[in-house]
Design a protein around this nucleic acid. Structure first.
Length: 273
DNA sequence: AAATGAACCTGTTTGC
DNA sequence: TGCAAACAGGTTCATT
């Protein structure tokens, strides 16, 4: 489901809803999501207090007291909801965290591609999930010069390099398509053939599209909802994603769709080179 | 080394 | 209407 904007919108909602809440009990309705849930997860979380909810790439990071860090990836269909304890259980609700003051945090994930891990807050970044991650696209380390450098040795299509989390985190299929359209770059162009000006404009387009999507509350296709249950509205701002056959907003020609490395790529043949 | 395809799952949409 | 195939926001693994 979620790319960086959706995870960031969830993070903001959760941080305001459960910060300072103390965990009374954890109910595990399944032993595993994509991977087995951490050993002793319920016991290790019991009694901890949420100090903040942060994000690294597409991972949500629950910072708890006693140097405990709970990291959670939403996969394709993962959702967090904050509800009163009395609310009925939803379908595919795999984990329920009950807080002292009558709120619950519930993880729901139809496809179970999501996963969670428990870490020592002092060295979590050494773990393989995080050690190889590239820079945050909205941070100071991501710009045209950096992107050009990472593209130089890559024969793969530029879209695949953009979606490589070791190059830059958080950019999935939707925002890769949208950023490449905004930058006027052909998704199939070998990354090593990018010019400096194109890399600069692509980096700027990535930042712009992610920033706008966060402001719109993310993109709801079918599953994504914020922690309070509201949808995101950025889907209405798509220029190419899921617009195959419809007129390009820039030149009017029909938007194309082609499979690329197993994913749909949406682009305008006339505007992207 | 790096690219492709399959795998992990279920739900929804599309096509015959 | 019914049924099967295609497809879906992500990541990792095995195979070229």
């Amino acid at each position: 489901m979620p790319e960086l904007p959706e995870v960031e919108v969830v993070r903001t909602g959760l941080d305001s809803l459960i910060r300072n809440q103390r965990i009374r009990e954890v109910q595990l309705h399944r032993p595993a999501l994509r991977y087995p849930l951490p050993d002793g997860m319920a016991e290790r979380l019991q009694g901890r207090t949420v100090e903040a909810v942060e994000r690294r790439g597409k991972y949500l990071l629950f910072r708890l007291d006693a140097d405990v860090l709970l990291a959670w990836h939403l996969g394709m269909t993962g959702q967090f909801h904050v509800l009163p304890a009395a609310s009925p259980a939803g379908r595919h609700e795999h984990v329920v965290i009950v807080f002292d003051e009558g709120l619950t945090l519930r993880y729901r994930d139809a496809r179970r591609f999501g996963y969670a891990g428990l870490f020592d807050a002092r060295d979590w970044q050494q773990h393989p999930w995080f050690a190889g991650l590239g820079p945050e696209p909205l941070g100071g380390d991501f710009d045209g010069a950096y992107l050009l450098g990472r593209c130089r040795s890559r024969a793969a299509p530029v879209k695949q390099v953009l979606m490589d989390a070791s190059v830059v985190v958080g950019v999935g299929n939707i925002y890769a398509c949208e950023a490449l359209f905004r930058a006027g770059i052909d998704p199939f162009r070998p990354a090593r053939r990018l010019k400096a000006a194109q890399a600069a404009s692509l980096a700027a387009a990535v930042r712009a599209v992610l920033t706008e999507a966060i402001a719109a509350g993310g993109s709801t296709i079918s599953d994504f909802v914020r922690a309070d249950g509201r949808p995101g509205y950025f889907r209405h701002a798509f220029r190419v994603y899921q617009r195959q056959g419809q007129p390009c907003v820039r030149c009017g020609a029909a938007v194309c769709r082609r499979m690329q490395a197993g994913r749909s790529t949406f682009y305008c043949r006339g505007c992207q080179h």
